[in-house]
C-alpha cells in the first residue's frame, strides 16, 4: 500500500476542477490508455492574460488524479509566464510529497501544462525529440536527460520512477545507465579519437556514425540527413524529409546529431546545417 499524504488523498477523493472547457485557449493531452495513465488539461484566459478557468480529465491512479487536481489549483489566476516555470517537483511539493515510484504522475502534469501553453501560442505539436530509448513507454533520450538533470536522478530506478523509462521489459536499462553516466560526467569515452585520426579516417567515421546511428533514428520520424562536407572540426550537413521543414530541426541538429557525433567520433566536432 502506498503512503499518500492527506493532501494527496484529499485531491484524489475530492478532485477539484474536473471536466472539459469548450473552446479552450489552451489544451494539452499526455499519456495513453496503454500506458496506464493519461491527462487532458484545459485552460481559459481572461482579458489580462490570466488563467480564469482550468479543468482536467484524468485516467490513472490516485496520485495521477491528485497531481492533475493540484495542478489546476496551482495555475488558476496566474499568467502563462508565471505558470510556465512550474516543475514536476512543484506539483509534488504542493501535495506534500509523492511516493518516489509515483513521481511520473507529477511529470505528466508538467508535460500537459507545457503542451497546453504550446497550443495557446500556436506552436506546432512537438515532434518526438531525440531517439526512443524505452520502447515499452516510448520515452526518448532527450526526455530522460531532462528528467535526470532537473531532478538530479542517480539510478536507473530513479529514471523509471520519474519518466517510466525502463519500467517494462527492462531491455533499455543499459542505455539509461549510459545517459546517467553522460549527464553526471562519468562517461569514459575512447578519448580524443580525433587526435589520432587522419582527416580521411575522421570523415569515414562521421559517415559511418551517420549511417549506423543517426539516419535510422531520424527516419523513424520521416526525416533524413546528408553529409555535405567536413571542414576541420565543422561537420556540414543537410536535413531532408520532414526534418527539413520541422521547426525543431535546430534542436535535432544540436541536441542529437552533434551530441552523437561528439560521443562517437570526436568531442570537438561542431555540426552546422547548410542548404544547397
Amino acid at each position: 500500500m502506498w503512503e499518500y499524504t492527506d493532501k494527496v488523498k484529499d485531491h484524489f477523493l475530492n478532485p477539484r476542477n474536473v471536466g472539459v472547457i469548450d473552446n479552450p485557449d489552451g489544451v494539452g493531452e499526455v499519456g495513453s490508455l496503454a500506458c496506464g495513465d493519461a491527462l487532458k488539461l484545459y485552460f481559459k484566459l481572461d482579458e489580462n492574460g490570466r488563467i480564469k478557468d482550468a479543468k482536467f480529465q484524468t485516467f490513472g491512479c490516485a496520485s495521477a488524479i491528485a497531481s492533475s487536481s493540484a495542478l489546476t489549483e496551482m495555475i488558476m489566476g496566474r499568467t502563462l509566464e508565471e505558470v510556465s516555470n512550474i516543475t514536476n517537483d512543484d506539483i509534488a511539493s504542493y501535495l506534500g510529497e509523492l511516493p518516489k515510484e509515483k513521481m511520473h504522475c507529477s511529470v505528466m502534469g508538467r508535460d500537459a501544462l507545457e503542451k497546453a501553453i504550446a497550443f495557446y501560442r500556436g506552436e506546432k505539436e512537438k515532434k518526438v525529440e531525440g531517439e526512443i530509448v524505452c520502447e515499452c513507454f516510448g520515452v526518448t533520450d532527450v526526455e530522460i536527460k531532462r528528467a535526470v538533470t532537473e531532478n538530479n536522478l542517480l539510478t536507473v530506478e530513479d529514471v523509471t520512477d520519474f519518466v517510466k523509462a525502463g519500467g517494462g521489459c527492462g531491455k533499455c536499462h543499459e542505455k539509461i545507465q549510459e545517459i546517467l553516466d553522460q549527464v553526471h560526467g562519468d562517461i569514459k569515452p575512447v578519448k580524443n579519437k580525433a587526435a589520432k585520426l587522419t582527416n580521411i579516417q575522421k570523415i569515414k567515421l562521421i559517415e559511418e556514425t551517420l549511417e549506423r546511428e543517426i539516419k535510422p533514428a531520424l527516419k523513424k520520424d520521416g526525416g533524413n540527413i546528408e553529409l555535405i562536407d567536413v571542414d576541420g572540426n565543422i561537420v556540414l550537413v543537410e536535413l531532408r524529409g520532414t526534418c527539413a521543414s520541422c521547426s525543431k530541426s535546430q534542436i535535432t541538429l544540436k541536441n542529437y546529431v552533434e551530441t552523437k557525433l561528439r560521443e562517437l567520433v570526436s568531442p570537438d566536432l561542431i555540426v552546422e546545417e547548410v542548404h544547397q
Binding site: 496506464g36 490513472g60 491512479c61 490516485a62 488524479i65 515499452c136 513507454f137 517510466k164 517494462g168
Partner: peptide, 29 residues
C-alpha cells in the same frame, strides 16, 4: 478506469480486494 484508484475508493469503505493493475504493485505494466 485504473485499478489502484478503484481499490483506494473501496478502501474508504473498508472493502479489501486486489488489482491486476500496474500502479498497485509499483511496476508500470
Amino acid at each position: 478506469v485504473e485499478g489502484e484508484a478503484i481499490l483506494l475508493m473501496m478502501n474508504e469503505l473498508d472493502i479489501c480486494a486486489s488489482s491486476g493493475s500496474a500502479c498497485t504493485s509499483g511496476s508500470l505494466e
